[in-house]
Design a protein around this nucleic acid. Structure first.
Lengths: 234, 234
DNA sequence: ATCTTGTATTTGTATGAGTATAATTGCATC
DNA sequence: GATGCAATTATACTCATACAAATACAAGAT
């Protein structure tokens, strides 16, 4: 069987580059809420791109709630409360720089709410096939370890399967974003970790609670898993 | 003191119209995931707009994860799992048509997870000023009732203040989206409600639990509030 | 079969002109 | 002085056109 050629994201388009540059600057606080980005022609010229590319970048940022444009008034950064903080791109832009510690705290707090609830839902609704898949993923994870690419992939698979087992599309998309964000943060700190602990045991406990259809147990198991993960970073 | 002129959204721009039209069609299932919107020139001509406006609309939809474009391959609708289901615009587009019952169920389920947790956080972190504001809002709500615009505004204020009291920016933006979505759905069904129940008592219980700094009580009170609200719709 | 190479199709970028919107200003009025 | 109304004007918005770049696909070479 052929390995299907991995879908290549391709080179970043110009308007995406512009959106990333300005978006990152906004999230880093270079342009505070209320700040003015008035003057399409000057701004685009200053970046050395056409107004077309610049405007399309603005549309992307506006779609994510970071800016707002009106004729005569110009383009301004919106208050933080309107930003789509869980958007995948916004998340990535946030973690290009040093992320605000308060933001990371908020993120973990939300994770602590969402993921145990998701585990409980999964325990109630999982199919046999999903349990099979989760067990298989943990098996690979145990055999290869988290040091290998395969092991990390299996870890991802496990969590993805768990989310899908909730049968709640909104929870899936949300927890997916949060999980990705948390991985970004751990990626930072994990550099220093000389001796990583083996996280397999708590994964197994969680998996079996879900297999048993035990929402309360799954909730508690996920809580424990998150507690241990957080402990590893301190 | 002058009342600042209320910010008027103004007329919808052309590219926003196009984005709304196609976005709504995607969410309504007219264009299923994988469906092709190939041919910018033809598509834009068919809608009677310039290619510029059409492309800017595409950038908006792409920013919300609904579509994906690549040269030669064309533009296609992405799988549902990538959609930003909690984006304000996406929510609005969803509720222009008959929303999928499963989606509404998922939304309420998430609300049942988020809002009690938010109430508990608020109980731990609220300031005195915030408690004052929440009490004042409930006072107005009790005096005017939910039949008046002022009363509904006070209800919104209460919930907004509660969220702000969590001190968690991510929870605020998230719960704000979910709350807005839930209001859309209730707006549908509430038409038929001949005799609305007075929701003030459970609001007061919740408010006092938060004022007392009682996370467990606040969690339970919010659960009860949501249970009653859901009951009103059945 | 597999790899390379070419080619055609589609989106991406650039530019310039003109339009529409709304913040601002100035003026008249109360 | 404050308020309401009209003209001004800065700014984003829309359009049309041309060209560039990327890439899926097919044809050919190995």
């Amino acid at each position: 069987m052929h390995m299907k050629k991995a879908k290549r994201p391709g080179p970043e388009r110009l308007h995406q580059q512009v959106a990333r540059t300005i978006g990152s600057a906004i999230l880093a606080g270079v342009h505070a809420p209320g700040a003015s980005l008035v003057g399409e022609v000057e701004q685009s010229a200053a970046m050395g791109v056409s107004r077309t590319a610049y405007r399309e970048a603005m549309k992307i940022l506006a779609a994510k709630g970071l800016i707002e444009s009106r004729p005569k008034a110009g383009t301004h950064v919106t208050p933080r409360s309107r930003w789509a903080l869980l958007d995948p791109d916004v998340l990535a832009w946030t973690f290009t720089g040093e992320p605000d510690p308060a933001y990371v705290r908020d993120l973990f707090e939300l994770r602590g709410v969402i993921e145990p609830a998701a585990a409980a839902l999964a325990a109630e609704r999982r199919s046999e096939a999903q349990v099979e898949g989760m067990r298989a993923a943990l098996s690979v994870m145990g055999a290869k370890g988290l040091a290998t690419e395969e092991g990390r992939q299996a870890d991802n698979d496990f969590h993805r399967l768990l989310l899908e087992a909730t049968g709640n599309a909104v929870v899936v998309s949300l927890a997916g974003s949060v999980g990705a964000a948390v991985q970004w943060t751990t990626h930072f700190k994990q550099q220093k970790q000389s001796k990583p602990r083996d996280p397999l045991p708590e994964h197994l406990v969680l998996c079996e609670a879900i297999a048993d259809g035990d929402p309360v147990g799954a909730h508690a198991a996920m809580n424990e898993l998150l507690r241990l993960a957080l402990e590893d970073m301190a």
